[in-house]
């Protein structure tokens, strides 16, 4: 296995795109090294790319791709819902290694963080074909092309809430539900609900019709739940049936709207 530790994302991407070989990125390693050693021809270590910082500017929080989940949990400027999601991600040992970039790139279907980032309307800074560009997280998850360099959120622009249900504390979550929306004159705008754990991909549901233009305290929870559930694919797994997962999502939606009502 060849090993590279490039200093620029463009170099890393170039190595990744070398033809005829299986080239993999190494960040925290909690996905790549899960269970066995990676089977790859080339290991591209991202540790020297300088993507290990969190910065705040103009109301935006920019989180470098190799920032760990624990660092996000500990950072004083991390908004509450994101910090909460980070803190409840499995155990401290994993959080100390797992990176935000790995979480995004892995599209981990039982992620604590991704639904929250989606609810914030997070943007990604990626390196694609040798160029830096920005793209929405949701859009990127559909195609997953390019090296993720940073995740940016603007906490002040959206209200975000998150709920998580686990079987046991160290377990990956069974269901994570996050909701995010803007408020214009006290009324909801651009609402999004994101759910991980329901099926093999993170579900993103726009619930405009159910709540857009209403005040948070006016939302009919049953109607909102039905709106979410009708568009949601939920599957059984070894830990719970689809019915239980749907019930948990309903509970999450109710709790989230209770909390949102206090805005």
């Amino acid at each position: 296995m060849e090993y590279f530790s490039p200093k620029k994302p463009e170099e890393a991407e170039k190595i990744k795109n070398r033809q005829g070989k299986k080239n993999v990125y190494l960040a925290g390693g909690t996905i790549l090294n899960w269970k066995s050693c990676p089977s790859a021809d080339t290991l591209i270590d991202l540790k020297n790319l300088g993507l290990d910082r969190i910065s705040v500017s103009g109301g935006r929080i920019n989180i470098g791709a190799t920032v760990t989940v624990q660092e996000i949990a500990d950072y004083p400027g991390t908004p509450g819902p994101l910090a909460r999601a980070a803190r409840t991600f499995t155990g401290r040992n994993i959080r100390g290694s797992a990176t935000i970039g790995g979480t995004v790139a892995g599209g981990f279907f039982v992620s604590n963080l991704l639904p929250v980032l989606i609810a914030y309307g997070a943007e990604l800074e990626i390196c694609l074909n040798g160029r830096r560009k920005k793209t929405g997280l949701r859009e990127w998850l559909d195609k997953r092309k390019g090296l993720v360099c940073a995740v940016t959120i603007k906490p002040g622009s959206r209200n975000v809430f998150v709920e998580c249900e686990k079987i046991s504390a160290i377990d990956f979550p069974l269901i994570v539900t996050a909701a995010g929306f803007g408020l214009k004159n006290g009324k909801i705008s651009d609402p999004v609900i994101a759910v991980s754990g329901a099926a093999a991909r993170i579900a993103v549901i726009r619930v405009s019709g159910a709540i857009e233009g209403r005040k948070p305290g006016e939302i009919d929870r049953e109607f909102l739940n039905e709106s979410v559930q009708k568009d949601l694919r939920v599957t059984d797994n070894v830990k719970a049936s689809a019915d239980i997962k749907r019930r948990i999502i309903k509970e999450h939606i109710c709790r989230i709207m209770d909390e949102a009502s206090c805005l």
Partner: peptide, 28 residues
Amino acid sequence: CDEEGKCGNCSILLDGVLTNSCMLLAPQ
């Protein structure tokens, strides 16, 4: 565990951070 990172019994302090050694590769 089978290098799932679940048991944490292989922990080390890596630059002061509690880390599963079963999930690290040599360059790390």
